[in-house]
Design a protein around this nucleic acid. Structure first.
Lengths: 199, 199
DNA sequence: CAATTGTCTATTGTCAACAATTTCAACAAC
DNA sequence: GTTGTTGAAATTGTTGACAATAGACAATTG
């Protein structure tokens, strides 16, 4: 975990984690003043953080009214999102196979072992973060990470329903399968495993 | 043009237009204080607007340093973006063919005639806006507009190089071709024309 | 002379007070 | 009963002042 220097980042990642882990349910309003006293800071950085999360698709903002946690995407929207994520991550994997930089493999292996541990523990926030970190590692590798900002809001919208519809251990096995195919240098198999994993 | 009630929206759309029309070139730094005096308001709403545009991919932010206009996407990134836009807009068109709501056709026809006029004029900002409005109309139609927030940042990143690489009249003809196919109820033709238009 | 350290300035980050807006309940008019 | 009105409370929008930081450049030291 990188620790952010400025408050808005800290607030944003804290709220992000709580939303994704299901501690704050869709529809819940977030008031600037409440959060300000909760974090012991002024409303300024809170506003910045809420704007961040709104643009990331986690919150829904209405002018002069405030923000609330966004609802899970509709079936139609989710269908589109799945395709977008596949497109981005598959492009990244394909790009990796052109270089086969071993650094990524090492990092993915590390992530897998942490992920396995976290699945046993009780901290769902940690599991979500490691799951996301896995995919981010892949996306970051391609084209000097230029895809990350494209990928993140799409990913986050999908993870809005993470906690309620995901079998943790199965997810781990699928990650492991992708990495195995990459170690073995089997591109088609890796891409296929990735595609089946993103659903 | 919709006029926004709050300052941050006004500032954001003003800057957005100036960036997309090439009046502010990639790499140009935007200072909060400068913009504040230029717009005759305080730094608060300016900050909000810059955050918006940053999340939309038009600006690049560095903590404690400030923002600058983002560079055009790399060839690799652009390639991915093209696929994403095609996926989103094709989904929307497909959804439309399930209902064939004539309201959209009327709006597209209106847009086309305005677009044709604007191509003759000298206001590039207007052309860009109408071009974007055309595609937004399509995307808005599907699933109560749920795709718009997904689509917008992708679209905007692509339009960062709009002014420098686009033949206006050709773009108009392609739009017209898509609408013609929709009027005639030829789904495959419309999708194909759309795919060829997004490049 | 090179490397480091200190200082200065431009700029962003943060804060608390005030203004504008929305919401909702109580109440009056029809 | 329903509808419109009004006013208070809650909340966001905006502002200007102050604090913290980064980057450039000068001073110092080996």
């Amino acid at each position: 975990m990188k620790l952010a220097a400025n408050l808005q980042e800290q607030v944003a990642s804290h709220l992000r984690r709580r939303i994704l882990s299901g501690q704050i349910l869709p529809g819940t309003p977030l008031r600037e003043q409440n959060l300000a006293v909760e974090f012991g800071i002024s409303r300024g950085p809170i506003r910045d953080a809420l704007l961040h999360l709104t643009k990331e698709g986690l919150l829904l903002a209405k002018p002069n009214v405030g923000v609330r946690v966004a609802a899970e995407p509709s079936a139609f929207k989710r269908h589109v999102i799945v395709h977008l994520r596949r497109e981005i991550e598959a492009s990244a994997v394909t790009a990796w196979f052109a270089t086969r930089d071993p650094v990524l493999l090492k990092r993915l292996d590390e992530n897998l072992s942490q992920y396995k541990d976290a699945c046993g523990g009780s901290d769902l926030g940690q599991v979500v973060e490691l799951d996301m970190a896995f995919h981010r590692l892949v996306v970051e590798t391609a084209d000097q990470g230029s895809l990350v900002d494209l990928w993140q809001p799409i990913m986050l919208r999908m993870f809005l329903r993470y906690s309620r519809h995901r079998d943790l251990m199965e997810s781990y096995n699928e990650h492991a399968g992708i990495v195995r195919a990459m170690h073995a240098g089997r591109e088609w198999e890796a891409l296929e495993a990735l595609k089946l994993h993103i659903v």
